[in-house]
Design a protein around this nucleic acid. Structure first.
Lengths: 329, 329
DNA sequence: TTGTAGGCGTTATCAT
DNA sequence: ATGATAACGCCTACAA
């Protein structure tokens, strides 16, 4: 039922080298033999064994991707970008959900290494030291999306600048007290960089930074929901909230809506990311769009370059974000 | 930098067979030699080459999954279910987005076959004849999620029954004219089965099936949005709409909300699937919950059974759905 | 233009 | 308990 190169060689009455040659489209084989071989291949339904091939040629046309959680709204789009480009270059991708769990990251990474992936893409905000060490010892090309660490190639956006810009936008709209729901304080991106942008904007506008207006959230809907409730309980609530990601922002919107607060009239809410859902909720969410698909696509493109030993213009790629003004502000 | 079994054999002063034995945890090796070998492994940072191993033992601990589009809200959750179980059994998964494109499906499937995946999981509503033929010729274990075709093992829910139930629920709530936005009429699940359930419910309740109340949608937000607008333009609009999936239902909600129609007071809307977003929008969406994670998890579990030559209780697994009453009805 | 043969890194059989 | 050695299916000098 399953045939190998020997079988087709026998059937075609040639040696296995010739079969190999036609399979690999070597130019040197005589048209007639080519045809003979093709016929045998057809008839047997022969498909080369990529595993055997890989063992010999030492590449697998396979890459691994480490991602926090594919069922989390933010990531599928970037995976899609990766996969489309990977597909163009005939790579297949191993998908690994790490749940932000360092052990799982390491375990997966080692499995990928054993399976001889040609490269890996790491998506997430935090790369642990241990993982970084593994990167070094295995020496498999890796590129980071959304994180930035040491000398590892990466693609991302300027989170500080983007946050500052959206807060600026709020200020220009006339809001003079703006709250923020942040990420976890150990999260370098959602927790730290975006908060920094917020502070920068307030500073430049000579607006005071009020501790009570900054509440720590996390990443999820629930964090935004609770964060917003906390803010609404304030003696004098702000007229706008910058929420560090869309998922939380949508949670925040619900908290407000439930209390009969109208958005954006009574309270403006803006988010960050531009996940799919943001355009679909009502009112739709004003946010900073990260080019998620492109981040994936470009990361994969860079990876193919590395795999082809091309030299990179720059190791750190910073993409453009854009402000999307919608109904919530 | 990269060592193989020979290197550690040399370093440990034993044969490669012994190294292989300790790597594979064979019981027969003497503790002292075991230790020697382990030390060599440590020092060299040796990791076995899974490709070579696979070539020999003829399995790759790898499965492939064909999915319409990972960036489509419905699927990530089922992939997550698959992956979690796969991980438990030490499988890695190849992710392939087919975009419902038959050529792409075939192309991917062949790539997976060449890469010698141990099994595949197909997610989607429609399996084409060509693909089915490939299933047969390659004879790699495959299991379907959400589709049902010939003798192929599958996991899914009773779409007709579930649709009927949610329409029944609407009827019991007192709605006497209920519209439906369907899937494409060639889609056996979203287009056909769910429409059938709707009709069944009306029939049993002796309610007329009015053509103008049935509008063909598709799968996406936009289809629901437009479908709903069409329905709202009717001379006498219905008091409730059953939308064939949540993504469309949320589009429908927006169409209504935009026109100042309040949900559920003026119009009840219910969906199908229970995608993540459904609980987060405001008002939250009443829907039939498909156990997406479980569908993935169970499919993978069944697959491992097949791969271990265990016999299946049944080829077709039908999971329970549940009605989630929320704010939109 | 084609064929022979060695090797890719393992596992597994058979001796020892 | 350990070691030689022949596969696994393919690619690729090298030879013819």
């Amino acid at each position: 039922m399953k045939f190998n190169i020997k079988d087709v060689a026998r059937k075609a009455g040639v040696s296995i080298s010739t079969v190999s040659r036609v399979v690999n489209e070597s130019k040197v084989v005589k048209p007639e033999t080519h045809e003979k071989v093709m016929k045998a291949i057809e008839e047997l339904g022969y498909k080369p064994n990529a595993i055997a091939r890989s063992l010999k040629i030492k590449n697998t046309k396979t890459i691994g991707i480490l991602i926090p959680d594919i069922s989390n709204q933010f990531y599928p789009e970037v995976v899609r970008g990766i996969e489309d480009i990977a597909n163009m270059y005939e790579y297949n991708i191993f998908l690994c959900n790490t749940d932000l769990d360092q052990e799982k990251e390491i375990k997966y990474y080692e499995a990928l290494a054993e399976k001889q992936v040609d490269g890996t893409i790491f998506i997430g905000n935090i790369v642990s030291q241990d993982l970084y060490k593994k990167f070094k010892t295995y020496d498999i090309p890796v590129i980071l999306i959304g994180a930035d660490y040491e000398d590892v190639p990466s693609v991302g956006i300027d989170n500080v600048g983007a946050s500052k810009e959206i807060v600026n936008y709020l200020i220009k709209k006339g809001h003079d007290r703006i709250a923020m729901i942040t990420g976890k304080n150990y999260d370098p991106v959602v927790g730290i960089a975006r908060l920094e942008g917020y502070k920068n904007a307030l500073n430049e506008a000579n607006m005071p930074i009020e501790d009570e207006l900054i509440v720590e959230g996390g990443l999820r809907f629930k964090n935004g929901y609770e964060g917003c409730r906390k803010i609404l309980e304030l003696e004098s609530p702000p007229s706008a909230i910058f929420v560090a990601n869309d998922e939380m922002a949508i949670g925040a919107m619900r908290a407000a809506l439930e209390q009969g607060i109208s958005i954006p009239e009574d309270l403006a809410i803006v988010g960050f990311d531009n996940i799919d859902m943001s355009a679909k909720v009502y009112p739709s969410l004003t946010t900073v769009a990260q080019p998620m698909y492109e981040m994936g696509a470009i990361a994969m493109r860079v990876l193919t370059k590395i795999l082809n030993d091309e030299i990179l213009d720059s190791k750190k790629i910073v993409l453009n974000y854009s402000l999307l003004e919608r109904e919530s502000s």
